[in-house]
Computed example of a mutant assay.
Amino acid sequence: MAKIVAIVGPTAVGKTALSIEIAKRFNGEVISGDSMQVYRHLDIGTAKITPDEMAGIPHHLIDICDIHDRYSAAMFKQQANQAITAISGRNHLPLVVGGTGFYLQTLTNNLALGQDHFDAQSARIRQHWHQLAEERGASYIRNCLAKLDPVAEKNIESGNLRRVIRALEVIEKTGRRFSDQPRQESPNDFLLIGLTTDRPVLYDRINRRVDMMVKDGLIDEARWLYDRGGADLPAGKGIGYHEFYPYFAGEYDLDTAIQKVKQDSRHYAKRQLTWFRNKMTVHWFDLVGGRNSPEQINELVQAWLIK
């Protein structure tokens, strides 16, 4: 049985910095638990860690896909488990770090998703829902999911029609809600550390992070993705990108696009907190607000490692 630390929480709350500190202290390697950081060239909008920030700590499941590739929770679970085995084999501590709730739940709760592939049944189901989306609009499809599985619908980011259809496909194929997939006992031992802070403080950090992303070149990065068909790509559905497409098309101004990125990011942070609190057993800490210290987290990790 491998011991794994998972650092979870909403965007802009300091997960990356904490992961580096713990990795240095306990000889760790980081596995990204972010569904967008797998894509090459999408660096600013995904808040991807830079080589300097890595501080020599090995990182896994970052920059492993092209923007035209599909990536799924089933693929993440398989590749993360492979990385855990390799890291543990080197007597290092695996650290899974990220905010994509369903990916992390899939790994820590060992959800039985099966293989994510295009068999005949899957193709028929997906074609059906895509056709309905063209005829009645994406909001109609989302409302269908909300009726069948309101928990899953609330935790899928705005504009991500592919994930909505994927959830509907799983429901139709398994007869179970997407948010309530069967689980098996995990063969590993996870310690889940969650970072949070007061909502106004978090929202202010998110707003300032978006401003910094814009200053660092987010608009050019979003334009690069848009020019390569981003509106129709799985990689192009992420927050920080799809909000700029109407601006590029002349449908509204730049300030409106930036405000939409901030709004979507705040809403996503709220959904992230709801997911982690309702779906996973987490030890919560507030480093931003000063209610807790990194040393308290280090002591928790140390005590857990020697159990």
Score class of each variant (00 low, 15 high):
Asn110Thr: 00
His128Cys: 10
Lys279Phe: 12
Ala146Cys: 04
Arg40Pro: 02
Tyr245His: 00
Val210Ile: 10
Lys215Ala: 12
Tyr241Val: 00
Tyr203Thr: 12
Phe102Tyr: 14
Asp43Ser: 04
Asp211Ser: 11
Ile31Met: 14
Pro246Gln: 06
Cys65Gly: 00
Gln115Arg: 06
Asp52Pro: 01
Arg291Tyr: 11
Gly217Phe: 02
Asn91Ile: 04
Leu111Thr: 12
His242Thr: 00
Lys260Trp: 12
Gly28Gln: 14
His128Ala: 13
Thr274Pro: 01
Arg176Thr: 06
Asp264Trp: 11
Arg163Cys: 06
Arg228Gly: 02
Phe102His: 15
Asp198Ile: 12
Ala12Asp: 12
Val210His: 02
Phe26Cys: 11
Tyr252Phe: 09
Trp129Leu: 07
Glu295Cys: 05
Leu113Ala: 03
Ser158Met: 05
Ile67Ala: 03
Ile62His: 03
Ile84Tyr: 00
Asp211Ile: 04
Gln78Thr: 06
Leu300Val: 15
Arg90Val: 00
Cys144His: 06
Gly98Thr: 07
Pro58Thr: 05
Arg223Pro: 00
Asn81Ile: 00
Glu134Gly: 07
Ile31Gly: 03
Leu18Pro: 08
Pro10Cys: 13
Ile31Cys: 10
Ile306Ser: 07
Leu95Lys: 15
Phe178His: 05
Ser88Asn: 11
Asn143Asp: 15
Thr196Met: 08
Ile239Glu: 10
Gln79Gly: 00
Gly28Ser: 10
Asp66Asn: 06
Asn298Trp: 06
Glu295Arg: 14
Glu185Thr: 15
Gly289Leu: 09
Met280Cys: 13
Ser88His: 01
Ile64Lys: 04
Ala17Val: 12
Asn109Pro: 01
Glu295Pro: 03
